[in-house]
Nucleic acid binder design. Sequence first.
DNA 1: TACGGTTAGTTGGAAATCCCAACTCAGGAG
DNA 2: CTCCTGAGTTGGGATTTCCAACTAACCGTA
Lengths: 141, 141
Amino acid sequence: MAPRSCSVANALEVVGERWSLLALREVFFGNTRFDQIAANTGASRDVLAARLKKLVAFGVLEKHQYSSHPPRHEYHLTDAGRALHNVLLMLKEWGDAYVTEGPLPLVYEHSCGHLLEPRVVCASCGGEASMESLTRSSAAS
Amino acid sequence: MAPRSCSVANALEVVGERWSLLALREVFFGNTRFDQIAANTGASRDVLAARLKKLVAFGVLEKHQYSSHPPRHEYHLTDAGRALHNVLLMLKEWGDAYVTEGPLPLVYEHSCGHLLEPRVVCASCGGEASMESLTRSSAAS
DNA sequence: TACGGTTAGTTGGAAATCCCAACTCAGGAG
DNA sequence: CTCCTGAGTTGGGATTTCCAACTAACCGTA
């Protein structure tokens, strides 16, 4: 039997390899240069080079030249890259709740002034998009 | 320099290896048995066995015996496992938007009757938890 | 001109993983 | 007695990963 066709699998094809999401985390933090990303993630340089190349090829990152002599580059998020913020946020939330022990290394404050407690809701009604509230629909886009 | 301590990294330590999230997707779909998961993900049986063992060890899945003669097992989600639904939902959303081509393989309907368009919001104010709306807070839990 | 430093990789070889097919083991079904 | 299902396990080869060292382009300074 052929494996299921699925957008989760497709997404993981692009960002699911080791170090990809951590590299993106660093770019979200503003650490856009190769050496910064390498140091903060702990990825080996060769694998990191391969991952960044792939993320650029898939349009998640863009290579920006910030100096021409000598040629130096920074990695910037594209729209597709920025859209991954929610994925990282949910992973962080889950890690906070079920994996990280002791004080959390990072807590976000939302612009409303409260500490962020993220919730996934339906854009139409604002109700929580819990497992039980969802059913498969046959409609396609 | 030591790599950054971070809940995203901790979460990926547990569910970031290849096949782990796809195996969980199958369990969310109700395919709780080894052979079903193997067939629907395409993972090789040895790696899948290792991943399931790890997910059980970390408390993401539980092994349930549904027949004692012969002994047969199903994998069930724990609370920690159920909490990963948001992560899969966000990955699916991103894959739908930026990777999957052609008609989407799966569309959800929310209990309100509309097709689900998930949004991540702040639980306190209900406002969108966009990248720009978040700042690092020094408060710890 | 020589020397050291920074940035962004690339290379080589050993170690760890992964993939695949075949095999095991336990218990039905016919 | 033989075949079938479910849930893995095993062996061996192909791939990836890790790590340290190396390259290459340029700048600062002396």
